[in-house]
Every structure is written in C-alpha cells, then in structure tokens.
C-alpha cells in the first residue's frame, strides 16, 4: 500500500457522531470550509461535489468507503483547472477515533507525484479547514476568514 502524501491530525473536544455530522452536513461545512460545502448522499459509489457558494463545482469525486462515525474515504479530482488536472484521482480519508473526552481526527490524502499543484493547493487549505472545524465545534464559532462569504479556498485553487 502506498504511503499518503499528507497526514494531518487534530484533537477535538466533541463526540465522533457530532464530528461526523459536521464533516458531512453541507450547512455546517459552509461555516468552516471557506464557505464551500460537500454535496453527496454519502453512499458508496455516489458522486461527491465540493460546491462553491454559488452552487458550481470544479472539484468532484466519488464516495469510496463509509463507516459512520469512524471512517470516510472519498476520491477527488478536478478536470476543469489545467494545473490541477494532472493530479488525476486523488483520495482523502477521514478517520475518527474517540480518545477520552476528545476525538482524534486523522486526515490522509493520497496524491500522485504528478499532482504538485494539487499538493500545493490542499496543503494550504486542509490545515486551516481542520483548525476552523475544531474552533467551531469547541466554541460554536468558526475562525474568521473560513466561513460563509469568504472565498479563500476558491482563490487558492485558482492561484495554485
């Protein structure tokens, strides 16, 4: 098995079920995911879209594995951006592991070496998204700049 390109870990004072809900509910996504939302019915084989605030989506994929509230695996690709297209099908995995009062959230992202622009793009995006997710779940408020009305992620994807 290939080693992932990135591994991110964050500990959040919440329950696995609440964290799963935050990760998979569009209206909650928008609060911490730079105003974007993941649209999917979260069934294996279903489509996955990362929708911009206007409902369009350049980032699409397929749900590969669902084990609520422990594991979620999704493939993700971008056919519209000439810089991101060479990455082909990337794959990210969320692992949720309760540890006492906390939940350890691990994010693995597998990206082919041809996807340098994709790697640069997500390595700026994911840590901010995870940090904002933690702040939102622990305080009720997301970080400024990562919630609805912010277009940081869209800007990053275009600039990369």
């Amino acid at each position: 098995m290939e080693k992932p390109s990135f591994v991110y870990v964050i500990y959040i004072a919440t329950t696995a079920e609440r964290l799963w809900e935050a990760l998979t509910t569009p209206a909650i996504n928008r609060k911490f995911w730079f105003g974007m939302q993941q649209a999917s019915d979260w069934k294996v084989g279903s489509t996955w879209r990362m929708e911009n605030s206007d409902g369009t989506a350049e980032n699409i994929g397929e749900v590969l594995e669902v084990d609520r509230p422990r594991k979620l695996v999704v493939s993700w690709w971008n056919d519209t951006d000439p810089e991101l297209r060479p990455a082909g099908r990337t794959r990210f995995t969320f692992l949720l592991q309760p540890e006492g009062e906390l939940v350890k959230l691990t994010l693995l992202h597998d990206i082919a070496p041809a996807g340098q622009a994709f790697i640069a793009s997500i390595s700026e995006g994911w840590p901010q998204i995870l940090s904002s997710l933690k702040t939102m779940l622990e305080t009720g408020e997301p970080l400024p700049g990562t919630s609805e009305g912010s277009s940081c992620k869209e800007r990053q994807l275009k600039n990369s």
Binding site: M1, K3, P4, Y8, V9, T106, L108, P127, S131
Partner: peptide, 21 residues
Amino acid sequence: VATVFRGREKYHYLNPVPIVD
C-alpha cells in the same frame, strides 16, 4: 508529527495543524 504504518514501516509526517492554531 503524525505517523502512519504501511506494512511494517512507520512513516512520519509534518503536522502543521497546531502551528496553524
């Protein structure tokens, strides 16, 4: 640092999330 096992190998990754915090 975050780690993952692949087979018998343990790989180490820079985890910037606490620095982002």
